[in-house]
């Protein structure tokens, strides 16, 4: 299902003042807000496909990307989203600047806060870092990934991709496969998909599953074929290669044999199955190129496109609240 192209006024009519200052965790949201954000993002998808993409919803606003971990994909997605909405965007890379030299996260936050940004987008290797930052600055904070905790904008863009592919999220059977233990993408997706009424399964070796994961309200499988049987969506997670060198799994080839997604295993899923991956992919480790590049099956390219739209929706909603302050 593809949304019919929308005009600017129709998209703007969908912006709504977000009831919170920050966008930190899926746990903070309710289904109505998620649906609202998805509707808005849908509108931005249409706009993004037009020649003139520039809006001025965020005119005069300053967006700061503060990425303590490198991520070209997410950082440029936010940068583009901000620019298309007319904001001034600045990228800070604390690792390569003097900011990182012995300065704590809070010192950095206070320094940047003094430059009066309107929205601060943070990625950090520690769980809870975005929430900590939000407590110390006066601007809005968006969590672009905190440690192994959450990556809520990824979950929103994944939901958008699924909703556009299937027309709904409720009732979908979705398998999230791979390194769930270390994955913030998995945590945010489980929260959002369950909230929207999907059936969520987690698949992976026991060494890559969090403790007591069965209490998340998901079904847990250690066998990939069994886990994806009948699934509408198979979402593969990225696996850090160093974790596969006898640490969490014996080797890459063993991992691929049992938990890597290829054509043969995928045949166990529903006939209309779509495959997702948050990127960047380890081809031949968690996913076979044959599957990843098959545009009839793979939503991976869509996910990147939806990323910009979903982030525009979040920025526009936060800005609408800023305007009301």
């Amino acid at each position: 299902m593809t949304a019919s192209p929308l005009g600017l006024s129709e998209v703007l009519g969908r912006t709504f003042p977000f009831p919170r200052r920050n966008f930190l965790s899926i746990q903070d949201l309710n289904p109505v807000e998620v649906a609202g954000l998805l509707d808005l993002a849908d509108g931005f998808v249409s706009l993004n496909r037009q020649t003139s993409k520039k809006l001025d919803l965020l005119k005069g606003r300053t967006l700061m990307n503060l990425f303590f971990e490198n991520s070209t994909r997410t950082q440029s997605s936010f940068e583009l989203a901000g620019k298309r909405l007319g904001a001034d965007t600045v990228n800070m890379s604390p690792r390569s600047s003097s900011i990182s030299k012995g300065e704590t996260l809070i010192d950095t936050a206070v320094t940047l806060n003094a430059m009066q940004p309107d929205i601060l987008i943070i990625r950090h290797a520690s769980s809870g870092a975005a929430s900590l930052l939000a407590q110390k600055v006066s601007c809005s904070v968006i969590n672009a990934g905190d440690g192994q905790h959450e990556h809520p904008t990824q979950a929103l863009l994944d939901a958008l991709s699924m909703r556009r592919a299937f027309g709904r999220i409720a009732g979908l059977r979705i398998a999230i496969c791979g390194d769930v233990l270390h994955s913030r993408v998995a945590r945010s997706n489980v929260g959002l998909l369950q909230m929207m009424g999907a059936e969520v399964r987690l698949v992976g070796p026991p060494t890559l599953m969090p403790a007591e994961v069965a209490r998340w309200g998901v079904s847990v499988f250690h066998d990939l074929r069994e886990g994806i049987t009948g699934c509408d969506v198979v979402m593969m997670l990225r696996l850090q290669l160093e974790r596969m060198d006898g640490v969490m799994a014996p080797s890459q080839r063993e991992y691929f044999r049992f938990w890597g997604l290829d054509r043969e295993k995928l045949a166990h899923a529903a006939p209309h199955v779509r495959v997702m991956h948050p990127g960047p992919m380890n081809r031949g480790v968690e996913i076979d190129s044959d599957v990843a590049d098959d545009l009839k099956v793979s939503l991976i390219q869509d996910q990147v496109e939806m990323g910009v739209a979903a982030r525009m929706a979040i920025l526009a909603s936060l800005a609408a609240r800023l305007d009301n302050d």
Binding site: S127, G128, D146, G147, Q148, H149, E150, R184, R187, P210, A211, E212, V213, R215, W216
Partner: peptide
């Protein structure tokens, strides 16, 4: 401490 809470919060934990 390892368990449901630490798992959900994404905190490195010990059983």
């Amino acid at each position: 401490t390892e368990g449901e809470f630490a798992g959900r919060m994404g905190l490195p934990s010990v059983p």
